[in-house]
Simulated assay, not measured.
Amino acid sequence: MNLNRRKLFGLMGGAAVAGPGIAKQAVAQLPQGLGLGIGPAPLWGEDPTSKGVDCGSISGRDWRLDEIATLKRLISGDLTAEEKEDRRRRKLHARHALISQEVASLMSVSGVRKLDIYNERVHRLEDDIRRSQHQSQLWRYLKEIGK
């Protein structure tokens, strides 16, 4: 096909003109009733409860009260074992970046030995992180079974 710049831009212009028509046709072919699962939204500035929609509660309870209780507990330092393990895991992930700097700063060690030390430390750290993840998962399962 002999294609020059004018023909190419002509095709692009035709695509821009045809695009909206194709989009309208695709929307028209969507199955009917796709949006029926969502109730009517309140108008801007209107009270959300005026249409029977209670945005502040889930199953009759205000979610903000639960969030306030959780934040108070976290601020006071009263952490569950799982939350303590999550913090420890985040510290381990932060430690990952320091390993390469520590190994690089070893002066009287050859390059090959530095790579061995680096790999060994990274693998140990990854094992600790994996163990922490398994511990948290075990706690979660035991908590679910206990319910």
Rank of each mutant, 00 (worst) to 15 (best):
N4L: 10
F9R: 13
M12F: 13
M12P: 06
A16H: 10
A23G: 08
A26G: 03
V27M: 15
Q29P: 04
G35T: 08
I38L: 12
G39T: 14
P40C: 06
P40N: 15
W44A: 05
G45M: 05
E46L: 11
E46R: 10
G52C: 05
V53G: 14
D54L: 11
G56N: 10
G56T: 05
S57E: 15
S59M: 14
G60D: 14
R61L: 08
W63I: 08
R64V: 12
D66T: 11
D66R: 15
E67K: 14
I68Y: 06
A69M: 09
A69N: 12
L71V: 10
L71F: 02
L74S: 13
S76A: 15
G77M: 04
G77F: 09
G77I: 07
T80K: 01
K84D: 06
E85C: 02
R88I: 09
H93A: 03
A94H: 13
A97W: 09
L98C: 05
I99C: 10
Q101C: 04
V103N: 03
S105D: 09
S105A: 14
L106T: 04
L106I: 02
M107D: 05
V109Q: 00
G111K: 11
V112R: 14
D116G: 07
I117G: 03
E120D: 11
R121Y: 09
V122M: 08
V122N: 04
H123Y: 11
H123D: 03
R124V: 01
R124A: 08
R124W: 10
L125R: 05
L125N: 09
D128V: 00
D128L: 02
D128G: 02
I129Q: 01
S132Q: 03
Q133C: 01
Q133F: 00
H134N: 01
S136C: 06
S136R: 00
L138E: 00
W139F: 08
R140H: 10
L142C: 03
E144Y: 01
E144W: 01
I145P: 04
G146S: 14
G146A: 12
